[in-house]
Amino acid sequence: MTEPDPHTLTGVYALDALDSAEQARFDEHLRGCAACRAEVAELTETASQLASAAALPVSPDVRAGVLAAVEHVRQVSPFPATADLDARRSRRWYQQPASIAAALMLVVSGGLGALALDERQQARVAEQRAARVTAVATDPDRLELSVPVSTGGYGTVVASGGSALFRTSDVKTLPDYQVYQLWILRSGSPQSAGLLGRGGVLEAFVDGVRPTDALGLTIEPEGGSVRPTGSLVLRVDMA
């Protein structure tokens, strides 16, 4: 199939009718194409009137729920949150390798050399971490599981001795107000295992996993959540 002319996709885009990969490509196109940006803006205003036309009375319970909730919800800063930067930094150790084995090689060898001097402390942490990652991936009794992500693709977990390597295939790109968040699902108290980004190959190294736990991946508002609020798109039981 030949690549379609992107300029003709403005209407489809305004109706949110592209699949996630195509939408990501068109977002990229929009960055460099002022004509499409202008047309998309107009057509999106038009599509928005289709929402106005669909208005229906919503239950007062929703109003009460929303107004009660926002009293406890902090607004994000007007600029991209530092949480995003932290998430990017923690992902550096495993950037887009072709396999878990490749990820390990990157972490163990080349990954550390590229660091600036002021990141020496982080490098030490990374070295310790690399040793633990190696221990997991080379344990003959390690657990290896692959399960589908409900929005497409799959996630793989390699676990041993309370530590787990988590890696997905190329997953659906989220809009810029959302993020994938990984959780240790323990009955009664899910614990965040970090923000993994908005799409692509997601990776994490998780410590303190018990055999009775599960790992869960949810879609959360940008900046992440204290406990899971979005839909669970993947769940892997460690037992």
Binding site: A41, V62, V66, V70, V73, Q75, V76, S77, P78, P221
Partner: peptide, 21 residues
């Protein structure tokens, strides 16, 4: 609906009127 309206509150700070209404 509830999730979206809470997001409106959270992300109002990022709304850019240059890009649309």
């Amino acid at each position: 609906t509830q999730e979206v309206l809470i997001e409106v509150w959270r992300f109002a700070t990022r709304f850019d009127s240059e890009r649309g209404s």
